[in-house]
Simulated assay, not measured.
Amino acid sequence: MMNFLLDTGVKETMVFGKSLGDVDHTIFKNKFQGLGRSSGIDGILAVNNHLLIAKRMEDKDHPIYILDNEHIDISSRIGVEVNGILGSRFFADYRIAFDFLKKK
């Protein structure tokens, strides 16, 4: 199981520091801008991934950006292990509701 932040301001899904040995699909090397680094971060784009959340939300052709986690330290800032960011693209076909009082 992995922990992701949901960030509607980010379109694509990102995973931090995942091993290339865990990627089965077509891979493209790239340098990614943003995340507080002006020089960019080395990473890869893996395509055709099957993503399933809560056994109800599914994308059988989901692109995932895999970034070198050496320069990304979100976990220490929020006190919970974060393996990546789930971007808005995944939720394009799903209606999502947040209840901040119930924390759901």
Rank of each mutant, 00 (worst) to 15 (best):
residue 23 V to C: 14
residue 14 M to F: 15
residue 5 L to C: 13
residue 6 L to N: 01
residue 80 V to W: 11
residue 98 F to P: 05
residue 78 I to S: 06
residue 25 H to L: 13
residue 89 R to V: 00
residue 1 M to G: 14
residue 60 K to N: 15
residue 58 E to I: 03
residue 49 N to C: 04
residue 44 I to R: 12
residue 94 Y to G: 06
residue 5 L to N: 03
residue 77 R to G: 09
residue 83 N to Q: 05
residue 57 M to E: 02
residue 74 I to H: 12
residue 8 T to Q: 01
residue 9 G to T: 12
residue 104 K to M: 11
residue 23 V to N: 02
residue 34 G to E: 02
residue 64 I to N: 05
residue 6 L to Y: 10
residue 28 F to A: 08
residue 84 G to K: 09
residue 41 I to D: 03
residue 82 V to W: 10
residue 85 I to Q: 03
residue 59 D to H: 14
residue 77 R to Q: 14
residue 4 F to T: 10
residue 92 A to Q: 12
residue 7 D to V: 01
residue 84 G to H: 03
residue 99 D to I: 12
residue 10 V to L: 01
residue 23 V to I: 14
residue 86 L to R: 09
residue 11 K to S: 06
residue 89 R to E: 07
residue 32 F to I: 13
residue 83 N to S: 10
residue 36 G to K: 13
residue 8 T to P: 02
residue 29 K to D: 04
residue 14 M to H: 15
residue 81 E to A: 07
residue 50 H to F: 00
residue 59 D to Y: 15
residue 17 G to L: 13
residue 38 S to M: 15
residue 37 R to W: 06
residue 33 Q to K: 11
residue 36 G to R: 10
residue 57 M to C: 11
residue 86 L to E: 04
residue 49 N to S: 07
residue 36 G to E: 09
residue 86 L to H: 02
residue 37 R to P: 14
residue 24 D to I: 00
residue 85 I to G: 05
residue 60 K to G: 05
residue 43 G to V: 01
residue 14 M to L: 15
residue 19 S to M: 13
residue 63 P to S: 05
residue 19 S to P: 09
residue 38 S to Y: 15
residue 10 V to T: 10
residue 10 V to P: 03
residue 43 G to S: 08
residue 94 Y to L: 08
residue 69 N to S: 08
residue 55 K to Y: 01
residue 30 N to F: 06
residue 6 L to G: 08
residue 96 I to V: 02
residue 35 L to P: 04
residue 17 G to E: 13
residue 7 D to I: 09
residue 97 A to C: 02
residue 43 G to M: 12
residue 59 D to S: 15
residue 2 M to S: 02
residue 71 H to Q: 09
residue 17 G to Q: 13
residue 12 E to Q: 05
residue 74 I to P: 10
